[in-house]
Amino acid sequence: MFKTDGQLTASIEQKLKDRFGDGLISSELLVDMPTFTVHQEFIISILKYLYDDDLLQFRFLTTLCGMHFIEPSEKLGVVYHLHSLKHNLRIRLKTYLPMDNPEIQSATSVFAAANWMERETYDFFGIIFRDHPNLKRILNEDDMTVFPMRKDFPLEDQTREDKNDSMFGR
């Protein structure tokens, strides 16, 4: 279990609320991780603010990954896990993007680590990161046309003919 500091979390929430107003949509504690859902337009200014703030110092980007939700409405999401080594506090930032225009500002200006993480997210979810220095596929082949981690992409190769689905109860 990670250390959760209720007081510090509350002060982060208050600071984000004061500074970004409607940019902060909601905040909650999920198991052992304070989670803030933020508006996608504010994401980089929030990351920068958390990075620069002398008290908080969230200067370590643990992960950045994509999400695809089908229910209740179809949307994409980007999840950031930040770590403040000063307080040993981990937080999660979530942001949602519409399916028809999944664009978000790149975090590479704040964290060098975000470079490949964003390329991976683009590769698998088709999320476009604006101002990314080199946004192209990373793990899949370059001429791939689909985004395989989206839920509508089937797990198995649909062109296969040697496998009879009815044999597998599907």
Partner: peptide, 14 residues
């Protein structure tokens, strides 16, 4: 959804 934070993937970019 399951995401692996693979340390190699993150630091190899440096």
């Amino acid at each position: 959804r399951l995401h692996f934070r693979r340390p190699c993937f993150v630091f190899y970019q440096a």
